Amino acid sequence: MNLKEAMQMKNFVVVGDTINEKKYAYKIKNQLLAKEYNVAAVGKELKSINEVDFDIDILDLCINPVAGLKLLKENKKTFKNIVIQPGAESEEIIKYLRENKLPYIESCLLVGLRLY
């Protein structure tokens, strides 16, 4: 899946600090909501991806890589793709995703919202 295809999905989970207006997770969550995507927030609002009460299309990692990896390892829900935002990537996350054959792209949803 590429960024254009990701933006055609409907159900997003933003993983990061979605409460602090200065954080990118906050901006991403609110811009997705403004464009009428279905959005849940994990990190400051929900504590686990497993608490999301809808089928997930896109997991957006906009969080410290150590915390992101922990949440991924605890996750039991299915999803179509992960978007790893700049700064949320790490060798450990990429290794975990590859070993578990989990689909991902390294990209930015803010860019996707502007382009598509």
Rank of each mutant, 00 (worst) to 15 (best):
T78G: 04
Q31K: 15
A34V: 02
E91C: 00
G16T: 10
N75H: 08
M9C: 10
P86C: 11
E106F: 03
K27G: 00
A6D: 01
E89P: 08
I93R: 10
N30I: 06
K35N: 15
P103R: 05
A25W: 04
A34Y: 10
V83E: 03
K4Y: 12
N2P: 03
Y24I: 10
L33D: 03
I94D: 00
N64G: 00
A40F: 08
L97G: 09
G68Q: 11
E45M: 13
E21N: 15
L33S: 04
A67Q: 11
M1T: 05
N64C: 00
N11V: 00
I105Q: 07
I58W: 10
Q31S: 13
N11W: 06
K76E: 04
V83H: 03
K77H: 05
V15L: 07
G87T: 12
D60L: 02
Y96E: 06
D60C: 05
N81T: 13
L32D: 06
M9T: 09
K23Q: 13
L59D: 00
K35Y: 08
F12P: 12
K77E: 00
I19R: 15
E89V: 14
K10I: 10
V111M: 12
M7H: 00
M9I: 07
E106L: 01
R114N: 15
N100M: 07
L32C: 04
S107K: 05
